[in-house]
Design a protein around this nucleic acid. Structure first.
Length: 297
DNA sequence: TATTTTACCTGAGGGC
DNA sequence: TGCCCTCAGGTAAAAT
């Protein structure tokens, strides 16, 4: 499932191929991939054809490509199973291909950016840019303090230099919600999904149901430090791939699945204490944790 | 207002 | 072999 490390791998793969490229043609095969673009496929294509891509930026799990000399950007979210692939313009259609954008790049010539998505939770849109609330650069891969309006409500991610640890800690004070729910709330801290929430909580020895307000200042600092370590390590290993649903722009899987300590390890021994990892239902999904290392308060 | 639940969606895999 | 059921889960709208 694409979370921050996986989306960053995709961003880093797209950036050299798309920065400075001009969009030649847009083919929308499935309008469900445009749920964030309310004006529909014809409008989407019309706004893009002929436009030049200025770069590729990311905040949390959202990607966007600002268009040159414009206050617009192509914004994208991969949902659960979305892929952005770089292909030859005449390459055969991908399984679950929804949108194909052909660009002309001054160095790489013609390339196709293929948006494929099995579960159709992901989507693309053309959106206008607004100023960031704090006036800082909008996200990774951007020095511009403007962000797509659809992404403006998303918090900065923990690897963003403008993320404010103290503000996050203060936000937790008044929250009775479980800490895992808070980690998954993209308006408080972005980029973390079910996998990295479980991994970070395991590393910080915090039970996922611990009320956020019950964590001390020291505990919140330690949790944020573990979140950053987990995300950075996953990024270095190219992300987590369980099945064919997450791949980089060349269709290759990441290796972090081999480094998981909690997520998906139900019944296997905890790497610290040897007690079997347990799985519990949580928010229509699963939590994986060690009942000995991560004591419930 | 804050928090929780639901809808969206497809394919893999298990049980019978 | 084929049918039915469950599960995977990010986001935003709806409900509480």
């Amino acid at each position: 499932m694409p979370e921050l490390p996986e989306v960053e791998v995709v961003r880093a793969g797209l950036a050299p191929a798309l920065t400075g490229a001009r969009i030649v043609s847009v083919a929308v095969h499935d309008e469900r991939a445009l749920t964030r673009h309310v004006l529909g496929a014809a409008d989407f294509a019309e706004r893009l054809e002929g436009a030049a891509v200025h770069g590729v930026a990311r905040r949390g799990k959202f990607l966007w490509m600002p268009l040159a000399d414009s206050d617009a950007a192509v914004v994208g979210h991969l949902g659960m199973s979305g892929q952005l692939l770089l292909r030859r313009p005449d390459a055969d259609a991908e399984r679950h291909e929804r949108i194909r954008i052909v660009v002309e790049h001054p160095v790489h010539d013609r390339l196709a950016v293929v948006f494929a998505d099995q579960r159709t939770f992901g989507s693309l849109a053309v959106d206008h840019l607004v100023e960031t609330a704090d006036g800082r650069a909008a996200g990774w891969g951007s020095v511009d303090a403007r962000i797509p309006s659809q992404v403006a409500h998303i918090a900065r991610d923990p690897l963003d230099p403008a993320f404010r640890d103290d503000a996050f800690r203060l936000a937790l004070r008044g929250r009775s919600s479980a800490i895992k729910r808070v980690l998954l709330d993209q308006t408080l801290v972005s980029g973390i999904g079910n996998i990295y929430a479980d991994e970070s909580l395991w590393a910080a020895r915090v039970h996922p149901e611990t009320p956020a307000s019950a964590l001390s200042t020291v505990a919140v600092r330690r949790l944020l430090a573990e979140v950053r370590l987990v995300l950075e390590k996953a990024l270095a290993e190219g992300g987590t791939s369980f099945d064919a649903q997450y791949v980089n722009v060349n269709g290759q899987a990441g290796y972090f699945a081999h480094s998981l300590n909690a997520y998906g390890r139900t019944g296997q021994p905890c790497a610290r204490c040897g007690r079997p990892i347990v799985r519990e239902a949580f928010m229509n999904r699963s939590s994986h944790y060690c009942a000995r290392c991560q004591r419930r308060r």
